[in-house]
Write a protein that binds this DNA or RNA. Structure first.
Lengths: 155, 155
DNA sequence: TTTATACAGGACTAAAATGGTCCCCAATTG
DNA sequence: CAATTGGGGACCATTTTAGTCCTGTATAAA
């Protein structure tokens, strides 16, 4: 399905919630309530986001979480990476020289390029975009040319 | 990690192998050999690809697998979908009205748009591209404008 | 300074997805 | 008929994921 984990999804929802009221800090309990998810789960997610540097936390009464930087400067990539690690299509497409099948593989390089393209796409989507409640028309005629994998089709 | 499953990876490798010699049919055993993966696994993968309509098979001596259509008309999306099901970022972003949290979610629509963009990107990558052994330069300055999620940043 | 509030870290468990193997059957060829 | 080759699906082991909980620590307010 090539999909994000459920926790990542939660993370996005929670981040969006915070982004809509960026001034006050938000307690985990409050967020769980607002988002209708179990508190421990939300809490776990929040901790991960803090560790990734996307949220800042304050302990104690009146404490809670707030964005570490403006929503427009937090990307979908950031959120996904925070929960699942780097965006990459294949195991071998982010680190170098791990796969012992490189010789017979023959597609690794190209997947790396595809990964890069996907990552770039996700970099261009910000939390500000995600948090918008009003559906936005996205004219998806995609950059088939721009993303030239440029096959000089000899196949 | 937002990555493809290992089987999908295998599928791509095997498809590429076939694409490089599109004339003769290729037996599972031969492919497993060429690609240096265990036969049962390769076999399983091939079966899935047949069921998805990307390969055609012929039984009996001299049988094997061949592409159901030219490599230039088989996309990365096709391959991923064949193994993992439809490309979608979130559980709820491909079917409608499954998630009971839509009310509190607030990001579903936007993820759907992102999914669509990713899908379109993967549609633009063909097996012919993937099968190319010579690394291709991919100028990834991505269409940040083209993919306007177009935030009229009121956040 | 005490108390209540809130986060931090991490152990732990249950459930699901994934990867991988194997077996028996069906079709095709010579 | 015998040899080859794919089809279908059961099955199991392992890993990943989701989710919970407990114990500790920082902070603020009374």
């Amino acid at each position: 399905m090539l999909k994000m984990s459920r926790l990542t999804d939660y993370a996005a929802v929670v981040m969006a919630q915070i982004a809509r009221h960026p001034e006050q800090p938000h307690a985990a309990t409050e967020l769980a309530e607002a988002v209708q998810l179990p508190h421990p789960t939300v809490s776990k997610t929040l901790k991960m986001l803090v560790r990734a540097g996307l949220l800042e936390s304050q302990r104690g009464a009146q404490g809670g979480y707030r964005l570490a930087r403006p929503a427009s400067q937090i990307t979908a990539s950031d959120i996904i990476t925070a929960i699942e690690g780097p965006v990459a299509m294949t195991e071998c497409s982010h680190a170098d020289g791990e796969c012992e099948l490189v010789a017979t593989c023959g597609v690794a390089d190209n997947w790396q390029r595809v990964s890069l393209a996907v990552r770039t796409l996700l970099d261009s989507v910000t939390l500000a975009h995600l948090a918008q409640t009003t559906p936005i028309k996205l004219p998806v005629q995609l950059p088939i040319q721009t993303v030239t994998l440029a096959a000089s089709s000899d196949i």
